[in-house]
Simulated assay, not measured.
Amino acid sequence: MFDVFGSVKGLLKLDQVTVDNNIFRLHYKATVVILIAFSLLVTARQYIGDPIDCIVEGVPSNVMDTYCWIHSTFTLPDRLNGEVGVDVPHPGIGPHTDKDEKKYHKYYQWVCFVLFFQALMFYIPRYLWKTWEAGKMKMLVLNLNCPIVAEDTKSCRKKLLIDYFIANLRGHNFYFARFVICEVLNFINVILQIYLVDLFLGNEFSRYGTAVLSFTEEDPERRVDPMAKVFPKVTKCTFHKYGASGTVQRFDGLCVLPLNIVNEKIYVFMWFWFIIVAVLTGLALIYRALIVMSPKARQFLLKNQARLSKQADINLINNKCLPGDWFVLMQLGKNMEPLIYMELIGELSERLQGKTSV
């Protein structure tokens, strides 16, 4: 098991240079790691363990297991209600005829693949941003934080950084716009994932979490477990074969799906996780809109980032910069030591005032 999950550790490594924010990392780090871990867990249970066991007389158990796994199993929605053990033997199980409504469960073969595909989808905005960012921030802060680099080298690097910033002043909006596009893609993706999982589970996922929460408040003797409805542990399967005289014989089998014990827990967690990530990402977009529209908000956040710098220097820089320039300065602050960042802000302020030659 440790070997299976060992490959996920690489995704948890922290980047040497920060080019995004914590909400962004919720998507491409936390969510991707969670989904890949779930996919590996289901794969281990599905292809290494025993995902289905079917009981029927007259058909070899291994044949019945394979047949029902490939052709899906079903439950009876009308048999979900009632006291288990008295009215029905198992939720969704009981005698039936061809006229009874049947709900087929075909998703379980695809759960591991869907989870992995979702992980890829959550990584796409990160991939786009890394491609568009192209290592710019890493090049800008190169050697400035390294303790073994000579002070003369650091001073030279800092001067080059200031020269770059002055030369490209008011020219970083396109860089910033690409980051905002990726933030929007994160939000669109998590909403799309909720919708796609809902389709995958037969329109049950959208209300799955709330149904699980309300389940504990219902009458214990008559309540219907929503997890048993979406992920039944006991299902039915009908096997057909030709008899000795050529007549088609029907064998009504009972199947146990231990894999659904894992699946139901995974999707309960995913429901709450997706809702939390969607809400936080939506709030982050509101915050981003406020930043773009409000110079005062940018000034406040820049002051919070450059706590050691003079207020006059921050005010001057904020008045001269567009949102894209402000964004680059904030990113620099995340990747530089506070004292070096203070010196950068001070010297940049002097250059913007024209006190030193360009």
Results as ranks from 00 to 15, higher is better:
187 F>T: 06
171 G>N: 04
315 N>F: 07
216 T>S: 12
286 I>K: 02
118 Q>C: 15
148 I>N: 08
272 F>A: 09
47 Y>A: 03
167 A>C: 11
271 W>A: 02
155 S>M: 05
81 N>Y: 13
73 T>C: 15
343 E>C: 08
141 V>C: 04
52 I>V: 07
63 V>G: 01
137 M>Q: 13
292 V>W: 02
211 A>K: 03
324 G>P: 05
89 P>Q: 11
212 V>L: 04
91 P>I: 02
294 S>H: 09
67 Y>C: 02
249 Q>Y: 00
350 E>D: 08
255 C>K: 12
319 N>D: 14
342 M>H: 13
134 A>Y: 07
203 N>D: 11
118 Q>M: 13
31 T>D: 00
306 A>G: 03
222 R>D: 10
164 Y>I: 11
265 K>N: 10
142 L>P: 02
121 M>W: 05
173 N>M: 11
25 R>C: 09
49 G>Q: 05
14 L>R: 15
248 V>P: 04
295 P>G: 10
334 K>F: 13
95 P>I: 15
106 K>L: 04
16 Q>F: 07
233 K>I: 01
103 K>T: 04
289 A>P: 01
135 G>R: 03
348 L>Y: 00
141 V>I: 14
212 V>W: 02
40 L>N: 09
125 P>I: 12
23 I>N: 07
205 F>P: 01
301 L>A: 04
39 S>Y: 05
223 R>D: 14
8 V>D: 12
186 N>H: 08
28 Y>K: 01
40 L>T: 02
256 V>N: 04
256 V>P: 04
232 P>N: 05
347 E>K: 06
246 G>L: 12
283 L>R: 06
290 L>Q: 13
92 G>L: 03
110 W>D: 08
59 V>M: 05
184 V>N: 03
59 V>D: 02
243 G>A: 14
47 Y>D: 11
22 N>P: 00
283 L>I: 13
33 V>H: 00
290 L>P: 02
349 S>Q: 00
153 T>N: 06
63 V>Q: 05
55 I>H: 11
80 L>S: 03
45 R>M: 12
98 D>G: 01
186 N>E: 05
188 I>P: 01
168 N>C: 06
35 L>V: 06
117 F>L: 15
302 L>A: 10
45 R>S: 10
190 V>R: 10
250 R>V: 04
338 P>F: 10
113 F>S: 07
32 V>G: 00
197 V>I: 09
357 S>I: 00
103 K>E: 05
46 Q>D: 08
195 Y>T: 12
331 Q>G: 05
182 C>M: 10
49 G>I: 01
169 L>F: 11
356 T>L: 10
285 L>A: 09
75 T>N: 15
37 A>E: 07
